[in-house]
């Protein structure tokens, strides 16, 4: 089985971003970038399926600027076999990304696509579900456990009330939640080997996909900040403040 894994280059999760003074966006100059944490989990799951002998090939795909090659090299170092970068300097919306991934799915004829459930920059949580619609495949979103049995995949999903398990017909789409696995670190020999693995670059034009957007960002601003309050000395003082000052209990 061939697995496609989507990977996004985003601001490192430890970075506290700052809004630009002119309100045009967040300041990404000289900020550490990394693979989206949910995408790391997606890569790890694909690698585990290959280690179990279920997957035969893992193709990592990213849509983004030329610099996203770094994240694809990371995916290769973690165990992906080859990589495809669909290069675009524009910030593309989820629908455009899903259309580009659909073009790659058609080309590669993959049986399973694993994506992160959301990217920690745009916080959209859309691409996997949109890819499900465009391919006509079933979707197992927010996965915390994945089991492949013949031509079907059982996905346990993290839902608001607890956990839900669904059986999906393959080919299918899976989006990862936090508890699916704990991603490994790439070893130095594997990082060296990854440099020699194939990385193909494509463009939206070459794939025949229009990336025009109907959503315009008018303004990006910092949220109202909370200021630190007071340190109370005792439980008695805390209870007194909650009752008489804040009036919340």
């Amino acid at each position: 089985m061939k697995i496609l894994v989507a990977v996004k280059r985003v601001v490192d999760y430890n970075v506290k971003v700052r809004v630009k003074a002119d309100g045009s966006g967040v300041d990404l100059a000289n900020v550490k970038m990394a693979m989206n944490p949910f995408c790391e989990i997606a890569v790890e799951e694909a690698v585990r399926l290959k280690e179990k002998g279920i997957a035969s090939e893992i193709v990592a795909v990213s849509v983004g600027p030329a610099a996203a090659q770094e994240q694809l090299r990371t995916a290769l170092a973690l165990g992906a076999d080859r990589a495809i970068l669909i290069e675009s300097d524009e910030e593309l919306g989820s629908l455009a990304v899903a259309k580009l991934l659909k073009a790659v799915v058609d080309k590669e004829q993959s049986q399973l696509v694993i994506l992160g459930k959301q990217a920690i920059d745009s916080d959209n949580n859309q691409t996997g579900q949109m890819l499900g619609a465009l391919t006509g495949y079933a979707q197992g979103t927010f996965a915390s456990k994945v089991e492949i049995a013949g031509d079907q995949i059982n996905v346990t999903r993290e839902i608001d009330g607890g956990l839900q398990t669904v059986a999906l017909k393959l080919p299918a789409i899976v989006t990862t939640d936090l508890r699916l696995n704990e991603p490994r670190y790439a070893s130095l020999p594997n990082i060296m080997k990854a440099k020699k693995k194939p990385l193909e670059t494509l463009t939206p034009d070459a794939l025949g996909v229009s990336t025009a957007s109907t959503v315009k960002t008018l303004k990006v601003e910092a949220p109202a900040t909370r200021s630190a309050g007071i340190i109370v000395k005792s439980v008695a003082e805390l209870v007194e403040k909650l009752k008489n000052e804040a009036k919340v209990i």
């Binding site: 916080d123 859309q126 996997g128 579900q129 619609a133 465009l134 979103t141 927010f142 999903r157 608001d160």
Partner: peptide
């Protein structure tokens, strides 16, 4: 924007060929 809504609506948006605005 519950897990049900997040699961369903992007699939609907793509079927309608329109972009979604989340949360």
């Amino acid at each position: 924007a519950t897990t049900n809504g997040k699961d369903l609506l992007p699939r609907v948006a793509a079927l309608l060929d329109v972009e979604q605005i989340s949360e």
